[in-house]
Structure formats: C-alpha cells, structure tokens
C-alpha cells in the first residue's frame, strides 16, 4: 500500500485520460490543503497555524544555517542504531525458536504480554537510569522495533511452504542451507513489511524521547518551539519528508530483493 501503482493500474487500464484526472485531482487537493492551511493561519493566528509561505522561508533559512542538518543527524543516529540492533535481534530469535516448538509455546504468553507494554512509557524511568544521553532513547527505539520485526518474521516463518522444505531435504540440502535459501527468502516480504512499519515508529520513538529530555535533535527543537514560537509545523514537515525518503529507499531495496515475485503486491496490514 505504499505503492500507488496498485490503484493506478485499475484506473489506467480503462483510459489514459483517467490517469490525468487522478493527477489533476491530486494537484487540486494539494492546493486546497495549502489554502486551508493559509486560511487557518489567518483566522486562528500564527500561534496555531504558521502560514505556509513563512514556514517555507523558515525551513530554507534553517537548512542554510546547518542547524537543521545537525538536528536531523542527531535524531537519525539514535533511530538507526536502535533500528539495526533490534532488527537483527528480531530476525535471529525467531530462527532460533523455529528449532523448538516447545520453547516457542513456553515463551509465547510472555512475549504477547510484554508486547502490550507501552514502551514509550518506560522512557522517564530509563532516563532516571541512564541519564540524558542517547542510551534511554536507544533502549526505547530498540524495544519498539524489536517486537514489530519479531512478530512479522515469526509470522513469515510460519507461512513458509512446507512442501518446498520437504523437496529441498529430498534433494539433499542441509538444514543450514534450508534456513538460508528457503526460509529466509520466503519470509523476506514479511521482513520488509516489518521494517516499513517499524521505521516511522523508530523515528517517532526517538523524537518522543527527545521531547522528554535531550540537548539536540528534531524532538528537542519541536518541544522548544512549542512554547515560544510558531515553528512547530516546520519541523513536523521535515520529519514527514525524512520518513518518506527513507521509506522510498526501503521500497527500492525491497523491489530489488523481491524482483522474482510476480507482481509488486503489498501484503502489509
């Protein structure tokens, strides 16, 4: 669903004029949203809605000053580190559990229960523990990402076609080879779904952590701006852009890794 083509295909098939209707509609909707934004700024005052033009100017000024860049780097550093650590753990653990159905059943209720913990709520306590450095944010990000990747990978392993595994055994493939070639490749679509769900949440978790305590990063900037001025929206926009760019990168990696699949179909949600 991160891809437009699924819908575009249904539409484009009937006539190319429809395609232009879609593009036109999107342009109109974009303009309407901007106008609504401008109207909101005029009626409610800049404290509630920073006017779009002013926002764009502010964005440009911040980009030139380099401050935005260092804030983005500070936020991404934590988000990516937590994302990578938890992503690796979230993939390895299901592979280990695959070997023992009994252990899987034994830990299942514990995992389901702890999955329900609002991980962000642990942040104030982690800050008590680790102080105001990157560590508390890293732990929250890692916890958030871990469960998402673990659950999707686990679901993927359960969906692997048993017949392919049986075929590979008859042919003489080793268990390691089966894990690597058949199970891993089969669950790749699930893995990417997990990553795509997890990444925006990793960024969110970092920013929320920065709200609570931080000396740098996008979250600190937003929280600082909240009380004094009207630039909240500025960084909100930056965050969206950031997530969209990284999502696009993940999408193209996925497309490359899954080029063997019949159609680019998204199975998430």
């Amino acid at each position: 669903m991160t891809d437009v083509p699924a819908t575009m295909a249904d539409v484009g098939k009937s006539a190319t004029s429809r395609k232009w209707l879609v593009y036109g509609g999107r342009a109109v909707l974009t303009v309407l949203l901007l106008l609504g934004w401008e109207y909101g700024a005029r009626t409610l005052g800049p404290l509630f809605f920073a006017p779009p033009l002013e926002t764009a100017q502010r964005l440009w000024a911040l980009a030139l000053s380099g401050q935005m860049f260092s804030d983005i780097v500070a936020t991404l550093r934590v988000a990516v580190a937590g994302f990578v650590i938890a992503g690796i753990a979230g993939v390895i653990l299901p592979f280990l559990l695959r070997r023992s159905p009994r252990a899987t059943e034994a830990v299942e209720p514990a995992i389901m229960f702890t999955m329900g913990i609002p991980k962000y709520a642990l942040a104030p306590w982690l800050i008590l523990w680790f102080g105001i450095g990157d560590m508390p944010k890293l732990v929250v990000v890692a916890l958030v990402v871990f469960y998402i990747v673990f659950i999707t990978t686990f679901a993927g392993i359960r969906c692997v076609d048993r017949r392919l595994i049986s075929m590979a055994r008859v042919i003489g493939a080793s268990e390691r080879r089966i894990s690597r070639e058949i199970i891993w490749t089969s669950l790749l679509p699930f893995f990417f779904t997990g990553l795509k769900i997890a990444f925006p949440r990793a960024v969110s978790a970092t920013i929320v952590g920065e709200f609570l305590v931080s000396t740098q990063g996008i979250g600190r900037y937003i929280e600082g701006a909240r009380q004094v001025s009207n630039t909240t929206g500025v960084f909100a926009g930056v965050v969206i852009a950031l997530v969209l760019v990284i999502n696009a990168i993940l999408n193209s990696i996925e497309r490359w890794a899954l080029r063997w699949r019949p159609v680019e179909r998204d199975m998430e949600l």
């Binding site: 509609g25 920013i207 929320v208 929206g233 969206i240 997530v243 969209l244």
Partner: peptide, 24 residues
C-alpha cells in the same frame, strides 16, 4: 479515481510519525 487521488495523501498520513506531533 477518488481512491487514486487520495492514495498519496493517505500514505503520507500513514507513514508520518504521529507521536512526534504530540506537541503540535
């Protein structure tokens, strides 16, 4: 057609880290 027009906006809203907008 309407679904296709809305698609990019919905995807943007889905992908946006909403929790980061709590102060907003």
């Amino acid at each position: 057609v309407m679904t296709a027009i809305l698609d990019p906006f919905m995807i943007g809203g889905y992908g946006a880290p909403k929790l980061a907008f709590a102060p907003l």
